[in-house]
């Protein structure tokens, strides 16, 4: 039986549920879970002050319900288990997580999966900026794992990511894959300006069709049908990333960013090159 946390009030003040994760709460007696300290504004309060608590996390599953837009850091640093969110969450969802799965039925804020090292995150709605990104001053964003977003995403997704996969069903904002070290970003909607700026290695697939505003430090290689994409498609379908239009024909390949190593690649639909 899962642990159910239902938020009942409507206040807009930030709530940070640091440590409220299946691997941490499993085996904790109910009273102790109720006393578990979380942050509410500038105060530390017991979990039970903000959430109605039902069930127990013995099966390593936590369900969140209610108004969660200002509930931040859900699943942050989680290493195992499963979190299911019915609704929309705040910032830092799955940040620095190292394992387990998180599913969100609605939207999520900025920093989804920032600096995560492994695990699987899927969000049905849209997300904010800096998905899988590095925090300021940090050298690396996500180093492994998968982030699947059904809706659209904001700016600087995958900033300095080192490995792992980000797939966005809708559009994404500017600077996707900024300073990317390696890994895979796939965007099925339109894409903002300067994707792949300063990327070293890695793959950015921009499959929304239409022109893509590439920097002058990207060079076109030609039109190909990449085998590896079929494997990624199969894997993402297996993990439930559905409803997107996978490109079936040939794709245009661009190499860059020549300013930083230049071993990155951007794939666009046929004729989707420079804007």
């Amino acid at each position: 039986m899962a642990l159910l946390l239902r938020r009942t009030d409507e206040s807009d003040l930030p709530i940070e549920v640091i440590g409220v994760r299946p691997d941490r709460l499993r085996g904790m007696p109910p009273a102790e879970i109720g006393r578990f300290p979380i942050r509410h504004g500038n105060r530390t309060v017991p979990l039970a002050e903000v959430f109605q608590i039902k069930g127990d996390p013995s099966d390593e599953r936590i369900d969140f319900e209610g108004n969660l837009r200002n509930v931040h850091r859900i699943g942050a640093q989680m290493s195992a288990g499963r979190i299911v969110v019915d609704g929309c969450t705040g910032w830092h969802l799955a940040a620095q997580m190292s394992g387990g799965t998180i599913e969100v039925s609605g939207d999520a804020g900025d920093w989804v999966g920032a600096e995560m090292t492994n695990g699987h995150v899927s969000i049905c709605g849209s997300v904010g900026d800096l998905v899988g990104a590095s925090y300021p001053g940090s050298r690396r964003g996500m180093t492994n794992g998968t982030i699947l977003v059904g809706g659209s995403a904001g700016a600087e997704i995958g900033r300095s990511m080192r490995r792992g996969t980000i797939a966005i069903g809708g559009a994404c904002g500017d600077h996707a894959g900024l300073g990317m070290i390696a890994g895979t970003i796939l965007v099925f909607g339109s894409c903002g300006r300067y994707p792949g700026a300063e990327m070293r290695r890695g793959t950015i697939g921009l499959f929304g069709g239409g022109p893509v505003p590439l920097l002058p430090t990207f060079r076109r290689a030609g039109r190909f049908r990449p085998q590896f994409l079929a494997l990624i498609e199969r894997e993402l379908r297996r993990t439930g990333f559905a409803g997107v239009d996978w490109p079936s024909g040939k794709l245009d390949l661009y190499h860059g960013d020549l300013l930083s190593l230049g071993k990155g690649e951007i794939w666009t639909r046929e004729g989707g090159g420079l804007a």
Binding site: L13, P14, G90, W91, W111, A114, P136
Partner: peptide, 14 residues
């Protein structure tokens, strides 16, 4: 704590 990467302070203040 850093709030450059912290919380959406714009909407969070009371």
């Amino acid at each position: 704590l850093s709030s450059d990467a912290g919380l959406p302070s714009a909407t969070a203040a009371d």
